[in-house]
């Protein structure tokens, strides 16, 4: 049903026996999942199944009740400086972009390197411009986030994550808040990243993305990993009843 969760040398992220409750609600049920270096994992499932919580647990934005999560073999520290240091290696892209509203686009990308990695501002700026170029918003560098379209903001958010040279990037429904015509421009940047070997965990219902870029689809329901398979296998031949129902529903639309 799911991976054993045992550590192999190439496992970048490994969750073992992870449980999480919100009060009475059991949102993550005995999750075992390992993600290899360079792997692109798409997480899919009905609303409320715990996808965001899983994503946020990996950089400890949500603490877990039980189990272990390791990054590059290191267990996540519980608090303080060590945790901050670990988070610097884990990029996160949010549904609502969350660009720093009081900083320019350029500053949004340089802030992390300058303040966390203590990179020389000149060097950070040059690197930031390269990244903004890569995601196609270099000409917006001097503006503030509110002056950009959603698609542009999300591409800046990806550049901000990349600026930290993360080992893995977590995407929590990166295109769900976007107008339809802007979804593609963000997906293209993500597909590009995947091709270049970035390790990615992507919560999304964009099946086009899953089919082109993902190595594996993880299907969650009610806090459990119900099924995981290659995109091809999962979309054409889901084995579990719940995955069949779920795909039936989203494919009809």
């Amino acid at each position: 049903m799911s991976d054993s969760g045992t550590l192999t040398k190439t496992d970048l992220v490994a969750l073992t026996g992870v449980n999480k409750h919100f009060g009475e609600l059991h949102v993550l049920k005995d999750i075992n999942l390992s993600i290899a270096k360079g792997e692109v994992v798409v997480v899919i499932g009905p609303s409320g199944s715990g996808k965001s919580t899983l994503c946020r647990a990996i950089n400890r934005l949500e603490p877990i009740d039980e189990g272990t999560i390791t990054l590059d073999g290191q267990p996540l520290p519980s608090e303080g400086k060590a945790l901050a240091k670990l988070r610097a290696d884990v990029g996160m892209v949010f549904q609502s972009f969350n660009l720093f509203a009081h900083k320019t686009i350029l500053q949004n990308v340089t802030l992390g390197p300058c303040k966390v990695r203590k990179t020389d501002p000149k060097v950070a700026e040059q690197r930031a411009m390269e990244l903004l170029e890569r995601v196609g918003v270099a000409n917006q560098a001097a503006k503030f986030p509110a002056q950009l379209s959603g698609g542009q903001q999300q591409r800046v958010a990806i550049a901000r994550a990349l600026a930290m040279d993360p080992k893995v990037i977590l995407f929590d429904e990166p295109t769900s808040a976007l107008d339809p015509e802007m979804i593609q421009e963000v997906l293209e940047v993500m597909i590009d990243l995947a091709k270049q070997g970035m390790t990615m965990v992507v919560v999304t219902h964009e099946m086009g993305f899953a089919r082109t870029a993902a190595n594996r689809v993880v299907f969650m329901a009610d806090g459990e990993i119900v099924e995981q398979a290659s995109p091809e296998e999962f979309f054409t031949n889901p084995t579990s009843r719940r995955a069949q129902d779920f795909l039936g529903k989203i494919l009809k639309h």
Binding site: A88, F94, F100
Partner: peptide, 25 residues
Amino acid sequence: PGQAEAARSVGMTFMQVLGIVVLPQ
């Protein structure tokens, strides 16, 4: 709250999150 979460995600410490991102806003 997304502002603080984004700041924590790039690896800022609690004091940096507060001083650089939250308090100015």
